[in-house]
């Protein structure tokens, strides 16, 4: 075998434009003709690389336009089916939400009847707090005694008195909830980890899980203010988002994508620029699983992701597609999912 400069030979074969040139394509012909002319010392390398590249051409079977169209028609029919199923899935979520509503309303009617029958118990009931605790994967909707609507996200706790006092409507939240507060002259206050939110008749989302670093308040309509042990009262305008982290200044910014903060109540979850750790925290709560990081570095990767009615497996598959990570279970029934770098 004759001695050649294998580095040059390899470089040529690695270069897509050289390969195309060798295979007779014209798009870079002038450039390579010139290169070959300027490097007579590599004549042998070019010759052999060309011979190899020329030999490595593959047959490309092509279906005719008619066949391709038929395949596309078949795909289109399947797509329509998917669209119908999607609609049906959404309806199912709403039916589920509605059934929870009915249950809660039954509770209120019972309470109302109790109040009417036993007047003595009225005062006791008034001070009795009602606790709503959602489990993993089950957001639910609650209507407060003043008509305020609250969507409580999964793994969250909301407590409120069965009858609000005359001078203040106070609720306690640990976790995430979207509020549509009924307007009246009594102030409405949400006590949450790291901050309190004072409300004046409005729609807003509070995202304040105790085990996370920050709380986020997003205002959709009306006006709210943020206060806390270490924070001075600050007012938000519609479209604004406040991020509260312990020991840090409150960050307030405007958002054009406000619905990303509360779309979970329609069964959707979206993350824009979230660290993977926060995403897996949420997924863990939603699906009742635990994520274990084999490499702590991965947990800081940031992602954009939005999900609606996908299964956990679908979501993990999506993440694997777009990120250099893999997920695996210890065994099929395990609630633990390991995350490692690809």
């Amino acid at each position: 075998m004759s001695e050649i400069n294998s580095q040059v030979y390899n470089k040529l074969l690695m270069d897509h434009s050289f390969v195309r040139y060798a295979q007779g394509e014209t798009d870079h012909r002038e450039r390579w003709d010139e290169w070959v002319r300027l490097h007579p010392e590599f004549e042998q390398e070019v010759k052999e690389a060309m011979a190899v590249a020329k030999s490595l051409r593959f047959v490309q079977q092509e279906s005719n336009a008619f066949l391709l169209n038929r395949k596309w028609e078949r795909l289109k029919q399947a797509m329509e089916k998917v669209d119908h199923e999607k609609l049906a899935r959404h309806l199912k979520v709403w039916r589920y939400a509605a059934s929870i509503l009915v249950l809660i309303s039954v509770g209120f009617v019972t309470m109302y009847l109790m109040e009417r029958n036993e007047v003595d118990k009225y005062s006791a009931l008034a001070s009795l707090p009602i606790r709503v605790q959602t489990s993993t994967g089950a957001p639910s909707k609650v209507i407060l005694p003043d008509g305020t609507e609250v969507w409580v996200n999964s793994s969250s706790k909301l407590s409120y008195p069965s009858v609000f006092s005359q001078d203040c409507r106070e609720v306690h939240l640990e976790g995430e909830a979207f509020f549509h507060v009924t307007k009246n002259s009594t102030p409405f206050v949400v006590h949450a980890p790291r901050c309190d939110v004072k409300v004046y008749g409005t729609m807003f989302n509070v995202d304040a899980y105790p085990d996370e670093k920050r709380s986020i308040v997003a205002l959709k309509e009306g006006s709210v203010s943020i206060t806390g042990d270490e924070i001075e009262e600050q007012f938000l305008k519609p479209g604004m988002v406040a991020e509260i982290e312990k020991g840090m200044e409150v960050q307030i910014h405007e958002s054009n994508h406000l619905q990303q903060y509360d779309d979970w109540k329609d069964g959707e979850v979206s993350f824009k620029g979230y660290p993977l750790k926060d995403i897996t925290n949420r997924l863990g709560r939603k699906f009742g699983v635990e994520f274990v990081y084999n490499d702590p570095e991965i947990s800081n990767y940031t992602y954009d992701l939005s999900i609606s009615t996908e299964s956990l497996n679908d979501i993990l598959e999506l993440l694997e597609f777009t990120a250099p990570i893999t997920f695996d279970h210890d065994d099929m029934d395990s609630k633990k999912i390991n995350i490692s770098k690809k």
């Binding site: 395949k71 795909l75 399947a78 797509m79 999506l318």
Partner: peptide, 22 residues
């Protein structure tokens, strides 16, 4: 092979709202 291609494109259609930039 044909079925897998079809399934993949149906998947892409189903999940189009969740797909990120590639």
């Amino acid at each position: 092979v044909d079925d897998v291609i079809q399934d993949m494109f149906i998947y892409l259609w189903d999940k189009h709202a969740s797909l990120s930039k590639v």
